[in-house]
């Protein structure tokens, strides 16, 4: 990744005559390094295209037309995005600082149990957590947010702890050796170096939350899961396929965006 940035700098320094050539070189080097990022959007477009073609050839009855009305779908889509976004921000605000605290000398003994419990908690169904929240707090948006946050907390915490563990110990030692305080070391060395990890954590949280947010409709918090639920209740296969397609496309798109963000951050940092 670092080669990309240094190459860019070199190319900018070159004569203007060679700029066109340099531009092409930059694009082709960007392409050769990131061509894999094109695969996912292609899949998403193909998926949506197939969906449109399919729905276009079908005669939709009035119920289907009502459920699949653009207004209805857009509203649910927005709810879905909101659910995922808010809960992800909450997860980050809680889990990342907690992970950093756990990486401090005094708290390091708690890391082992956290990692073990975090690994095992992957088997704890987010669906169950969500439903239990509804019993505790009643139905609704904020209940869903709390459920989503709790469900994603341990995996992201686990990710952060592992990521900070992987920061090169010799760099930390070098920073301390130059006379940085442990606070300076944390903010000027460890956290910048852990940024890729934190972004990876964001991606994990987003993917998890987008997935679980589809189930929020079961506790009355709306979202695209509503479409699936209605399709199942009304026994409408067309609606089911459209709902599944849209959810899948949204999740892929969000993961792709997070992936691109991750790539940018890693390129900058690395």
């Amino acid at each position: 990744m670092s080669t990309a940035t240094s190459e860019t700098v070199d190319l900018q320094a070159e004569e203007s005559v060679e700029e066109v050539e340099g531009q092409q070189g930059r694009i082709s080097s960007l392409w050769s390094q990131h061509y894999d990022l094109v695969i996912l959007p292609a899949i998403i477009i193909l998926l949506l295209l197939a969906l449109f073609l399919y729905v276009g050839t079908r005669q939709l009855d009035s119920i289907e037309q009502r459920v699949l009305a653009p207004d209805n779908v857009a509203g649910l889509l927005w709810q879905q995005i909101l659910l995922a976004a808010v809960s992800t921000v909450l997860v980050l605000v809680i889990a990342v600082p907690l992970g950093i605290v756990l990486s401090r000398r005094g708290a390091r003994r708690a890391q082992g149990p956290v990692l073990a419990v975090g690994g095992f908690a992957q088997a704890l169904p987010p669906f169950g957590v969500l439903l239990l929240m509804a019993f505790w707090l009643d139905f609704g948006f904020w209940t869903a947010i709390i459920g989503l946050t709790i469900a994603a907390l341990l995996p992201v915490l686990r990710n952060t702890v592992v990521g900070l563990q992987q920061v090169d110990q010799s760099l930390i030692e070098a920073a301390r050796g130059m006379g940085m305080t442990s606070r300076q070391t944390l903010f000027r060395v460890e956290i910048p170096l852990a940024v890729p990890v934190i972004v990876a954590g964001l991606r994990v949280a987003l993917v998890l939350n987008v997935g679980t947010a589809t189930l929020a409709s079961y506790i009355g918090a709306g979202g695209l899961g509503e479409l699936v639920q209605q399709a199942l209740r009304l026994n409408r296969i067309n609606v089911l396929l459209v709902a599944g397609g849209i959810i899948a496309a949204l999740a892929l798109l969000i993961d792709w965006l997070a992936g691109v963000a991750e790539r940018v951050v890693v390129t900058r940092a690395g």
């Binding site: 993917v207 987008v210 997935g211 679980t212 589809t214 189930l215 899961g225 699936v228 399709a231 296969i237 089911l240 396929l241 709902a243 599944g244 397609g245 959810i247 899948a248 999740a251 892929l252 993961d255």
Partner: peptide
Amino acid sequence: LTVPSLALFALFLP
């Protein structure tokens, strides 16, 4: 792996 399970269940059901 990033596709929500509810979506895959919905797509395979038909």
